[in-house]
């Protein structure tokens, strides 16, 4: 692992925080493959867990009894779970189970769909996100989408757009360059594009475009990074690069990833939340959820009985 240059400062690390700053992660220490003594629940002995146990974990967001309705349809039903910095949280479940809706509600993107209604509360550092102005919230909780979607401008301008004031173009390139380079470095893209920063971003390869989108999301110096199936449009090699990147990022930002790919969740997540038809069926450490699930439904899903 190469040293990351200029990592963003971890903000608001308050020792007086009522929540213990160091939460013991339940689960089995990871040592390369699945936990020892795992019952034959899933076929996950083949998938390698190549990540080390988290160094620390700080509770950043708290999802508290959240229900989301689209008109009469209840997409998310009373879900509660913590989101911690230092860890990767994966949301898994079959299509239409509400995982993407839940993810999008974390930075109030669901509000853009007029029909969506949210009850319960989501707190970011103990402040209800409904009390945070949306544009400020979305700089603290940024998001990467399923389809790579760089803006139709140069690689440099994609990042600079995030750094500049709203619609302004006034800030000089020279002033922004260090921040742009730092964001690209954190997303592991700088070495590949440093000579072509003026090239159109849509000419990059799919995997590079997605890393540019991650760099763009990191440029806002967020506290939480949301990823909505970031690898589903990519080839296996690009996926591997992005998975490595996600694991590297977990110390600097709290990472939440929605994925359809169970192996991926197993490879990179520390905690996994399994959702089914809007319910949170099980929230557990990845090794437990995949190897010794507490719920029958979870066992069926991770063993491929449905989905």
């Amino acid at each position: 692992m190469e040293p990351l240059s200029a990592p963003p400062p971890i903000r608001r690390l308050d020792p007086q925080d009522p929540i213990p700053a160091r939460e013991v992660v339940l689960g089995v220490p990871t040592n390369g493959n699945g936990a020892a003594g795992a019952p034959a629940a899933g076929g996950f002995t083949a998938a390698k867990r190549s990540i080390a146990a988290p160094q620390f974990s700080i509770r950043r967001m708290e999802v508290d009894k959240v229900s989301i309705h689209y008109g009469a349809k209840e997409a998310v039903k009373g879900v509660s779970l913590p989101i911690r910095q230092g860890e990767v949280l994966a949301l898994i479940g079959p299509s239409g189970c509400g995982k993407t809706t839940l993810l999008r509600s974390l930075n109030r993107l669901t509000e853009l769909t007029a029909a969506a209604r949210l009850t319960g509360s989501i707190r970011l550092d103990d402040v209800d996100i409904r009390l945070i102005e949306p544009t400020l919230l979305r700089r603290r909780v940024t998001m990467v989408f399923q389809q790579p979607n760089p803006f139709p401008m140069s690689v440099f301008d994609n990042i600079a757009y995030v750094l500049r004031e709203q619609g302004s173009r006034r800030t000089k390139k020279k002033v922004l360059a260090p921040q742009v380079h730092s964001a690209l470095q954190r997303a592991g893209l700088f070495e590949e594009v440093k000579d072509n920063l003026d090239h159109p971003a849509l000419k990059l390869s799919g995997g590079q475009q997605q890393r540019l989108c991650i760099a763009r999301a990191l440029a806002a110096e967020p506290e939480v990074l949301l990823l909505d199936e970031p690898c589903s449009a990519l080839d296996p090699q690009s996926t591997a690069v992005i998975e490595d990147l996600i694991v590297k990022l977990r110390d600097d930002v709290a990472v939440v990833i929605v994925t359809h790919n169970l192996q991926q969740a197993y490879r990179i997540a520390d905690h996994v939340a399994f959702m089914y038809l809007g319910d949170l069926v099980e929230y557990n450490s990845a090794t437990r959820l995949f190897n010794a699930p507490a719920q029958e439904r979870t066992r069926e899903y991770v063993s491929g009985a449905f989905g």
């Binding site: 700089r139 998001m143 989408f145 389809q147 619609g167 763009r216 999301a217």
Partner: peptide, 22 residues
Amino acid sequence: PRHVREASYAVGKTKAATIRRI
């Protein structure tokens, strides 16, 4: 695509900025 607009909102940009710059 809708997700391009949302990508701009998701880094804290206003609707006006998104329309003008993207």
